[in-house]
């Protein structure tokens, strides 16, 4: 099992490398000339062509893209993620300061997703094709098709200003995160509900459930003991995909609820054309997604006992 796990994790290395390459390319296609930006940062100096050329050489911009990628990569590994075009601050530091906010909103969203969709999906599976199933199916589709930014504005108006259930804005306590997390998770709740329903239905159709019922075990005990555990594995494997969706979607939510996270940072950077921040944001979010997927893989192996014995499979390369 250990070698299997290592091999699974090893397969992430090319993905990680490819992701950094993609991020590097984002910098290449950006219309700004970094040398020019650095030289004119004080807002007064207008560098001559020779000065610019010298600076470009000094920054390594006259080298081939391959060489630039290697030195950029080395810098990234040493924590030199570049400096902001606007205020000259270190990109990594700025991003790391905003990271906890995004992580906490995303975690809150995941909490809501699990809180709502696992039981609701189970209800759907139990009442398969009856009215609760149909109603919840419609709800799940509605949840996946509602524009979150629109929902967020309405929810803020109704729940925060009119009913005063949640605080309107601010960041600091858990209470501030409840609503943003919920809104962020809305689409995922709908999707996971359906996933949980289908997974549970598949499990319930299996023979061992039939055996358990034949033994006379109460239905809800079977659902709880056999069904949920097995369908949970399916959900966990897909959760990796959903978390990447949540991390991306967090940008809009953070902006609307004015939370000082990565999303707010990058949207401000987009307005200001601050390319290093945008590039760093993609790199950071990409790394996080890949690490989450690695974690999911580990969890998958731990949850699925058969895999521990099975060892490696020849053709499996994800």
């Amino acid at each position: 099992m250990k070698t299997y796990l290592w091999q699974r994790l090893l397969l992430f290395v090319p993905t990680l490398l490819g992701m950094t390459l993609l991020t590097f390319l984002l910098g290449v296609v950006s219309p700004a000339d970094p040398a020019m930006v650095v030289m004119t940062m004080d807002g007064m100096s207008a560098p001559s062509a020779e000065e610019l050329l010298l600076k470009r050489h000094e920054m390594g911009l006259d080298q081939s893209y391959a060489m630039q990628y290697v030195s950029w990569m080395a810098g990234v590994l040493h924590g030199r993620w570049g400096v902001s075009f606007i205020d000259g601050k270190d990109v990594l530091g700025t991003l790391l300061a905003a990271l906890p906010v995004t992580l906490s909103v995303t975690s809150m969203a995941i909490f809501w997703v699990i809180f709502f969709s696992i039981p609701l999906g189970a209800v759907m599976a139990v009442y398969y094709l009856q009215w609760p199933d149909r109603l919840l199916l419609l709800l799940s589709m509605a949840l996946t098709s509602v524009p979150v930014f629109w929902l967020a504005i309405i929810a803020m108006q109704v729940l925060c200003e009119n009913l005063r259930i949640f605080p309107t804005s601010g960041y600091g306590s858990l209470r501030n995160l409840l609503l943003p997390g919920l809104i962020l998770g809305v689409g995922t709740i709908g999707a996971v509900m359906r996933l949980q329903r289908d997974a549970l239905l598949a499990v319930l159709a299996d023979n061992y459930i039939l055996t358990a019922r034949a033994k006379g075990l109460p239905f809800f005990y079977i659902i709880y003991k056999h069904g949920l555990r097995n369908s949970f594995i399916t959900v966990v494997t897909m959760l990796g995909n959903y978390i990447s969706g949540l991390l991306g979607g967090a940008a809009i939510i953070e902006m609307i609820f004015s939370l000082p996270g990565l999303g707010t940072l990058v949207l401000a950077a987009v307005q200001a054309r601050d390319y290093p921040i945008i590039q760093g944001y993609v790199l950071m979010v990409g790394c996080m997604t890949i690490f989450v997927n690695m974690g999911v893989d580990v969890l998958y192996v731990l949850l699925k006992p058969q895999l521990r014995l099975e060892g490696r499979r020849d053709y499996d390369c994800r």
Binding site: S244, V285, T289
Partner: peptide
């Protein structure tokens, strides 16, 4: 690789 970056983040970038 493309799935390693959240779609919406890449779109923003």
């Amino acid at each position: 690789v493309f799935q390693g970056i959240p779609g919406f983040s890449l779109m923003i970038a």
